[in-house]
Each structure stands twice: as C-alpha cells, then as structure tokens.
Design a protein around this nucleic acid. Sequence first.
DNA 1: CCACGTATAATTGTATACAATCATACCGTC
DNA 2: GACGGTATGATTGTATACAATTATACGTGG
Lengths: 234, 234
Amino acid sequence: MANYDLKNEVNDKYSLRGRVFQKLREDILSGKYKEHEELKEVAIGEELGVSRTPVREAFRQLELEGLIQIVPNRGAYVTGITAKDVKDIYMIRSLLEGLCARLATEKITKEQLEEMEENIYLADFHASKGHMDQMAELDNRFHDILYEACDSKMLEHTLRDYHQYVLRVRQKTLSTNTRGRASNDEHRQIMEAIKEKDADRAEQLANGHILNAYENMVKNGLYEVYGEEAAGSE
Amino acid sequence: MANYDLKNEVNDKYSLRGRVFQKLREDILSGKYKEHEELKEVAIGEELGVSRTPVREAFRQLELEGLIQIVPNRGAYVTGITAKDVKDIYMIRSLLEGLCARLATEKITKEQLEEMEENIYLADFHASKGHMDQMAELDNRFHDILYEACDSKMLEHTLRDYHQYVLRVRQKTLSTNTRGRASNDEHRQIMEAIKEKDADRAEQLANGHILNAYENMVKNGLYEVYGEEAAGSE
DNA sequence: CCACGTATAATTGTATACAATCATACCGTC
DNA sequence: GACGGTATGATTGTATACAATTATACGTGG
C-alpha cells in the first residue's frame, strides 16, 4: 500500500531518491533488470551518479512496491512474478475495475467522459492503421481515466498499483491487432453504460473486460515472456 | 503495494530500520502519534537510540504504507484518513474478502480449518465473559487465517494491508458486546460454508460480513474517533 | 580428493558530517 | 503600524566513513 498522496509523484521528480526510484522502477518494468537479478547499491549509485543513500531509500520503496526483494545483509533482487501471481492479480483487478466502473457511473465528470470518448475514437483510428504503440498508450490512458473518475483515492491508488504491476508482463500482449480492436470495443461498451448511468452493466462489463484481457494474454503466450518459472509454478 | 515476501517481516525484527519501522507503525496505529502530527527524524532517532539513517528508511516505507506523508524538505506527517477513505476501504475489502473466502473454499488445509474452528469456539467463550481485548485479537486472527487459506500471495498481501490500515479506525469498534457476538456468528457461518465447499455462499457471507462490520462502525461513532476532518470530509 | 576452517574481499547496515532548503524572527523602510 | 527583505536557525537531503555481516577462495588436515 503506497503513496496515497499523488502529489508525491511530482515531488519524486525533484529529489535524487525520487529519480532513482522512478528510474529503477522503469528499468525493472521494461525488463532491463531481469528477474532475480541482483541490484547493488554502489553500482546503481555510480550509474546514476549519486551516493548510496538515495539508492538505499529507493530500494526500500521498491521493496514495498513489490518490485524487488531485499534480503538483509545480502542484497536486493528483482522479484519474480509467477504465472499464478499474474492470474491472481487479474482476478483481483477484475473485481476492482468493476467496482471502479460502478462508482464512476455516478461520479464521472463531463470532461472525463469527453476524454474517454476521444480516447476510444482515437484508438479506432490507430487500430485501423496498426499503430500498436499508440494503442497500448491509449489503453493505459483509458483505464487511468476510469480510475480517476471513480472519485476514490483508495481505489484509484490500488488499481494503479496493480495496473502498473502487470505492465511488466503485459508488454506485447496488445500487439495482436485483433485484441486491440476487441479491447477498444469493450472500452466503448463500458463508456456507454456509464453514459447511460447503468452502473450494474458498467460494473459487469468492466469485470469481463479484465477477464478477457487475461484470457487473451494466456492464449498469446504469457508463458514465453515469463519463461520457466512462470510456466512451472502452477 | 508492499513486502510480498513475508519473510521480511521476520527480517525486519533484526535490523534497526525494521525495528524503527515496526515501532512507528505501531505507534501510529495505536494513536500515539495523531493525525497530521509531524515526525522529526532526529527526535525519533534519539527516542529509539539510533541515527537518522534507519529512521529515514523507515519513513520511506511508512509513506508507501500510507501511514505518513513526506513533504520534501519539510518533513513527515501522519496521514489523515477521511470518513470516505474508510468507507471506500470497506467497499474494497468486502469484494476482496469475498474472493478470498471463495478461493479458500478450494484451498484451505485441514489445519487451517481446525484453527478456525478453535478460534470461533474460543471467541464464544470470551464473548460470554466480556473479554473484549481477546475478542479483537481473535477477530484479527480469524481474518488472517482466511487470508492464508486463500493461497494467493497477492490477495493475502493486499487484504493484510487494508486490514491493518483500518485498525487505526476500528480500535474500539468491536467493544460493543453485541457486535462481538454477531461478528463471531458470521465467522461461524463463513467457516461452515467453506467446510461444505459452498464457494458461492462463502463469498457472499464474507462479503456481507465486512459490510456489516462497516455498518456497525458507522452506527457506533466512527465520527467521534476521527473527529472533525473525517466527519466533514463527505 | 574431499571436508572443514580461516582469511580476505565484497556488500550491506549504521553513523555522522556537510549541503541545501525552508520557516521564522528581526529589522528597516514606506 | 504594515509590509517586505534579509539573516538565522532548524530540518531535511546527500555524501562519506566506519562497522558488521556474508560470500568466496584458499589452504590445511584427514
């Protein structure tokens, strides 16, 4: 559980610790540091041109974010995500995104609804052009809007955490054109339910949307991305 | 999102940082440090007989746990929880404890089931004697068993986080004898559903159990505990 | 050749020194 | 007297020095 004040995300940009934190998070999520790789304080410090102190503090944060694991007097290791973890996260997310959509039905602002509409419209365009990077970007943004719209700091934060967490795995999942289109269609349906103030339907759709994303991911070879361990773990 | 390896809870006992972290968490949860109170690195350090370094690292962790908020170059302040936050947490927990109970129906071990049974039996005894401290303890433990039983590291961790978080507020909520008994009865029902492998019923019961706990809390004056801000915030 | 123990190197844990930032109080000016 | 600026103190941010712990390599004895 982390960082309930989003302002700190801004703050983090202005301290060395914050920059180290963000950099390491990005590098772990992007796969630069692989699972079980050891992160050494001095090495990271030298690479970023800072001393051990901010690095250590960043480590402590990364540990609580679940991205690394610190073994006392030994070191910090990039956390392994098992296939079961991923499955569990999607189960949890399914429920919570449903709740989020339900709450958003009541609380969403006109501006947020408009941005959603634009997002979906744009995604249609990029889908037709096969622009996969933009599709992924828009997909992320759609969910972000939903998280904001539910007007619950707690829920928003939890969902962001999970969403960010699975990005490690998702990576190229959306890169099949068919899923990109289907996903965007589901976004549209969710938006329409919200627009029509049908909270139950919005919840159900958001629920299914996450489960579909998971199904698709499994079908398209999550197991190749997170090789041996993930496949073998359950 | 935090500390996915529970071994670290053990580790924490053996480092200064870990001890500082635990001590501060306890003190915040118990109310020794009140909302918006400023925590100063040197003061805490002197009080615990350690230097600023472990204190700072503990601060970073507490921030990610949502217990304090760090303002750069200013200081660390105990986080305020609004009434809406509490409500949202209970909504989220309701869903997730339901999921947890459902999963536990499949995965629970014989030993866990036995401990549950014992827990409920003991709670009956203490309820009849009016031992409120023991009741609270057993209540916590019941949920812990459930979290373990679902056999999902991710879900277990998330639920623990939230559970711990609301302890700040809950404090004396269980101290009405009537809720203590009712709560334990609900525990029994959940356990029986799990025993009979009725996952749907277990989920539904766990769902309701959390919502009931919330209802009761509101009725019994959450607003007195978390005075002005909590009451005014929504 | 293997097992065990010791020495050494590498790494983390902690303390402290110094730099940067922010709040406060004081003083001068209008 | 009010406003604004500067100086001073307090507090956090960062770097570095030192202590403790752990892993590795080597050598010795069996």
